[in-house]
Amino acid sequence: MKKVQFNNKFIPYLFVSPQIIIILVFFIWPSIMAIYYSFVMQDAFGVSTQFVWFQNYKDALLNSDYYSSFGFTLIFSTLVTFFSLGTGLFLAHKTNSMIKSRGIYRTLLMWPYALAPAVVGLMASFFFNQSHGDVYHFLNQLGWKFDPTSDPFSAQAMLVFIASWKQVSVNFIFFLSGLQGIPKSVLEASFIDCKSNSKRFWTIIFPLLAPTTFFLFITNITYSFFDTFGMIDTTTRGTPMGETKTLAYKIYQDGFLGADIGGSSAQSVILMLFVLIITIFQFKYLEKKVHY
């Protein structure tokens, strides 16, 4: 076979340049600006600027609210990742074993993916509304004193529920394609060797899904860290008692509502480092256990 090769050295660069430009403009440049702003104190209108070294970091890290927000973010992202991955996998497995109506289920289960997080939050704010929300009344009739406006646990539970619900469809479709990618021969062999459905699933299918699970695990964590912003803004806005405030939401409140640019930039740099560390950790230790 003849190798196709460009004669000109620069053409490949030309082809990748749109992507490079997008990364530079929308990712690298803002990150650099955030790092710059995290070292200065500047009034909202940008009239006076002073370099303050690590003062913004100090103020953020010495604030007890920061840690409660940190704690909530960790618990929230763990739960959302667990529930949405679990449900997605369960639905994918069930759908995959269907023969006739698989297509319909696949289409229907994909639908929530089309919803923007803010819209999901808006819908939830109707369902869970204390004066005319059906779910609100239903939960209270069950005997749970459900009240997302003044009881932190209710509000947190509500957020975990809607954030997981929104993400199930993505996980579902990835798991489904992962399941369909498992070679038939392997499955048939396992049928002969093992009768138990669940054992076959956990010892053969689940390990073979590991690359998919690993990928989804990382995307789900970033989702619950960042993309859930819209939902929080349209439902609890961090209330009650500030106990549903993710780090990303706190950055928005301090920076955009409170006009404290230095302080919120410092927080976002800390968050950036944190996510970087998690991701590196995951790739280093978890990926070793994944077999492609």
Partner: peptide, 12 residues
């Protein structure tokens, strides 16, 4: 206390 929303407290 019906939460921090303006409207929720007025609604009551």
């Amino acid at each position: 206390y019906y939460g921090r929303g303006w409207a929720d407290n007025q609604q009551a």
